[in-house]
């Protein structure tokens, strides 16, 4: 627990440096000023508006991606051995399709309303979810599947009774990665072409040189990301079998 004191310590140092003008307070306003700005923006309702829009976009994108990604992953994972050669190259090329590039193309087809933003988030989340599910499904213990077959499970019932529970941890890890990606991409998409949302708020404040508002936006985005990631603990507590069996040592998760 002691090591979480590094957060208040960090903020205290920031506050101190800025208050005593050791770093330029115009570029680095004191932390308390930023918090005051956040409070002001909450009381004026401005922040809530943008937060609501951003969250709705991110979560609906994630929802669409999981609806498409999990079945796709099960399909690919189940037949991975047979389809390996066929899918290897197209999947590699498709996953290289940069979402920002795609954004410009999607705008051509869908215009500039909400659909392109949700689509871009969904596209970005689709890959971690699909690949994770695929890995999980292809790693299901074959003897489990054999014994399921021996008990007469076929098709959908085999998937719901054996494959899904056995690969739940991997699928969940994929969804969690997707959640991180969704916020990340959304902010970018909102900065590039939107007139609302947290990403727009940050970019707009920067362009108008309202650095207090910019920092407030950044703070709220960071907090929203932390809260969303923290919500993951709830299903983990309820269903411990979702916990990853092996620690994954990347920063992206």
């Amino acid at each position: 627990m002691i090591r979480y004191l590094c957060f208040p310590a960090f903020l205290l140092i920031w506050e101190f440096l800025s208050r005593f003008k050791l770093i330029n307070p115009i570029f680095f306003p004191p932390f308390t000023t930023i918090v005051t700005t956040v409070v002001d923006m909450i009381s004026s309702g401005e922040l809530w508006l943008h937060l609501k829009i951003s969250l709705a976009r991110a979560l609906s994108g994630l929802f669409i991606a999981s609806l498409a990604g999990v079945p796709l992953g099960i399909l690919l994972g189940g037949y991975a051995k047979k389809l390996e050669l066929l899918l290897e190259l197209p999947l590699e090329v498709l996953s290289q399709l940069n979402p920002f590039l795609l954004f410009h193309i999607i705008i051509l087809f869908m215009g500039i309303g909400e659909p392109p933003k949700v689509t871009i988030v969904a596209w970005t989340c689709l890959w971690p979810i699909t690949f994770s599910t695929m890995t999980g499904v292809s790693q299901v213990n074959p003897s489990l599947i054999k014994s399921g077959r021996a008990f007469g499970l076929r098709g959908l019932s085999l998937i719901t009774k054996i494959v899904l529970p056995a690969s739940a941890a991997q699928i969940f890890a994929g969804l969690r990665l997707g959640l991180g990606y969704s916020m990340f991409m959304l902010i970018a998409a909102e900065m590039m072409g939107a007139s609302s949302g947290l990403g727009w708020l940050v970019l707009n404040s920067q362009e108008n040189f309202q650095l207090n508002n910019m920092y407030a936006g950044v703070l709220v985005i960071a907090l929203a990301g932390l809260v969303l990631d923290g919500l993951v603990w709830l299903p983990l507590k309820l269903w411990p079998q979702l916990a990853p069996r092996e620690a994954v040592n990347t920063a992206g998760d």
């Binding site: 090591r3 957060f7 960090f10 990340f184 936006g217 960071a222 990301g225």
Partner: peptide, 13 residues
């Protein structure tokens, strides 16, 4: 933990 949070900061911001 501090570095973990830094890693989570959206580079776009």
């Amino acid at each position: 933990p501090l570095f973990r949070v830094f890693g989570l900061i959206n580079p776009y911001c």
